[in-house]
């Protein structure tokens, strides 16, 4: 099946075509998730935020002005909803009961899920990166891709800083991979 254009899918969804809607969801769910993942939420809040983004898209389906920028629209909406959720928690939960859940990644559990030794090595290095690097790298490798302007908005930094920050993060990741490789027991060791 040839890829329908986003504009076409949006029009069909607005007219009530459920399959068009499902196609939009499967094309962009990963992207929305990558944005929401960058915030310190518990699972319930993360679910609410993710869901709200799609409800807003349904609400605006027939009125997206630049369909070709849907990735950016979804990413920005996800960020706005995430920030709103953070503010809401700030209002409703007294500070002494409030703590941010660290964006934890568990490389041991991930090892089981990830296929491919290289992918596992990359992920193990990713897991050791500071949170801001992880957030940025998630956005940079989002699929469909986001442009630097949108990424800059998402992380709240000037566009010009994204390239250099990305460079720093990926360099760090390479260093960690090198270190891990050095730590590995040499080949042929007995078990």
């Amino acid at each position: 099946m040839s890829e329908d254009s986003v504009a076409e899918l949006l029009v069909r969804a607005a007219e009530g075509d459920r399959r068009a809607w499902d196609a939009i969801v499967s094309r962009y769910e990963r992207l929305v998730w990558s944005v929401v993942r960058g915030f310190p939420f518990d699972d319930g809040t993360r679910h609410d935020v993710f869901q709200t983004v799609w409800l807003r898209l349904v609400e605006h389906c027939g009125r997206i002005r630049e369909p070709e920028r849907l990735a950016g629209w979804l990413a920005t909406t996800a960020r706005n909803e995430a920030i709103r959720a953070l503010q809401q928690r700030r209002r409703e939960v007294p500070s002494e009961f409030r703590f941010d859940l660290p964006d934890r990644v568990n490389p041991e559990a991930a090892d089981v899920l990830i296929e491919g030794e290289s992918e596992r090595a990359v992920f193990r290095a990713f897991a050791e990166l500071p949170e801001d690097c992880r957030h940025l790298l998630r956005l940079v490798c989002a699929d469909p891709p986001l442009d630097y302007r949108t990424i800059a908005e998402l992380v709240g930094r000037p566009v010009g800083s994204i390239g250099p920050t990305f460079g720093r993060c990926i360099k760090r990741m390479r260093q960690i991979m090198e270190r891990h490789r050095g730590l590995k027991p040499s080949n042929g060791g007995s078990r």
């Binding site: 790298l137 998630r138 490798c141």
Partner: peptide, 12 residues
């Protein structure tokens, strides 16, 4: 590296 990370994140 990004392509590998993308696959890893999708799985993990």
């Amino acid at each position: 590296i990004l392509a590998m990370l993308r696959r890893a994140l999708e799985a993990a």
